[in-house]
Write a protein that binds this DNA or RNA. Structure first.
Lengths: 232, 232
DNA sequence: CGCGGCTTTGATGTTCATCAAGTAAAGTGG
DNA sequence: CCACTTTACTTGATGAACATCAAAGCCGCG
């Protein structure tokens, strides 16, 4: 490629290395010109179940949740996504292009919108891209299914422990961190009531397994927490 | 293609219309020569979690289950697959080619084994195939996730009703049918104990919503069953 | 014909959701 | 910036839903 005054900022984007690793230069430019970025404020709803879906919606910065709402208004969080997570891949290419889940923003976030038609063309014309796409899709799908299986085999203490350990080991990579979500959202994610999330956290505090200061959590006895999570 | 004495029997196979709709003639022959068929008897295990996975394992006839086993030996059934179901797609192309779930046979079954490498080549070289593959993958994944969400939002009566209606409406397309699984397997599929599955079925019988004769079920009051499934 | 797995029902206990009530924190409008 | 309102958090008490335990009948299979 020759030099270009307006360097496409997609080139800096980490997504590139995740699902766009095998793009040819022309394809890359194309995406860059058709994509758009949008900012959302905490709490804003990005898309609701049933709405027409015309873009692959990717998280550049911030935090989002995908959730399901029952007829009586109870929410179940299916996944909380950090930037460059592959979960959005699961939500496109399905029954006549309508959103399967609700998506809203947990923190102020920047989202990237890429027309689905563009992705479809890439799949059709670039085998390596298609393969990468499938691998990511499979991994994400299995991770999500595994999440549900795991929860169904744990009691309340096990679930809360599992949630805390997941944050510590897979997201923040340290033992002290800020909870990115409310107690209510924890409850919706791990399938219990808000009261019982709080109760269980308090128990852990009294048992000196964790320290709590508002949204700040410090895991002081990771071994015990791990055992509780494994439950037996 | 010129005439061929040994017509490939894949040509008759329904799978063709599901994920192999867009194969070019040469590709088709190739699959046909590399695939192999195997018969399994009721109860036999086809593959266990962690074993190397070298084939896309497709169900031609019979019934199989994919399940997860906890450390203390309890099973959760993730999916029960009828012939030509797309669930097997979810199980290939993942972390270094090892099985994610256990797979065993619920009835005497015929399975078709297609080398994964062959599928990979198809994805790389045939964009339409890749696209079909992705759509099926997405649909199956969402159906499975939906299964878990649905269960988590139902009480025991709702779950059993949902299970029966699923068989009646989506599998057998009639109101009288043979249960293809034991009470224990129903329990493992919808996340409750065997005793409570039986108890709930008995309740429905006493309430004259269904008739039971061993494994034969007749749904006599589908409306009420549907309401119970919707729960509220 | 007897053994083991599947099925069924009842009795009991535990886990968890629900209800209630109060405190702390965080928006909101004047 | 403060009064006001709303939302988030916390703890305790209660009851319902469900798992577990126990015991017996049934069926298929060697």
């Amino acid at each position: 490629m020759s030099e270009n005054k307006h360097l496409c900022d997609c080139k800096e984007c980490v997504i590139r290395n995740l699902i766009f690793a095998h793009l040819k230069p022309g394809e890359f430019e194309h995406i860059c010109h058709q994509k758009s970025e949008q900012h959302f404020k905490k709490g804003q709803i990005v898309i609701e179940k049933g709405q027409p879906l015309e873009h692959l919606i990717y998280l550049k910065s911030g935090l989002v949740k995908y959730y399901h709402q029952t007829h009586d208004g109870k929410n179940s969080i299916i996944s909380i996504s950090v930037p460059y997570d592959a979960f959005p891949l699961l939500t496109i290419f399905q029954n006549n292009q309508h959103a399967t889940y609700n998506m809203s923003v947990l923190e102020d976030s920047t989202l990237c919108f890429i027309p689905i038609e563009l992705i479809r063309q890439l799949v059709l014309n670039n085998g390596e891209f298609a393969f990468d796409f499938i691998v990511k899709l499979t991994e994400t799908s299995n991770k999500t299914i595994q999440h549900f299986i795991t929860l169904n085999n744990k009691n309340l203490r096990g679930r809360v422990a599992y949630f805390l350990l997941n944050l510590s080991n897979n997201i923040y990579f340290k033992d002290t961190f800020e909870l990115p979500v409310s107690r209510k959202e924890i409850a919706e994610l791990i399938g219990m009531t808000t009261e019982n999330v709080i109760r269980t956290l308090s128990e852990f505090r009294k048992e000196k397994i964790i320290k709590i200061n508002g949204k700040e959590i410090e895991i002081t006895e990771k071994d015990r927490l791990t055992k509780i999570s494994q439950y037996g």
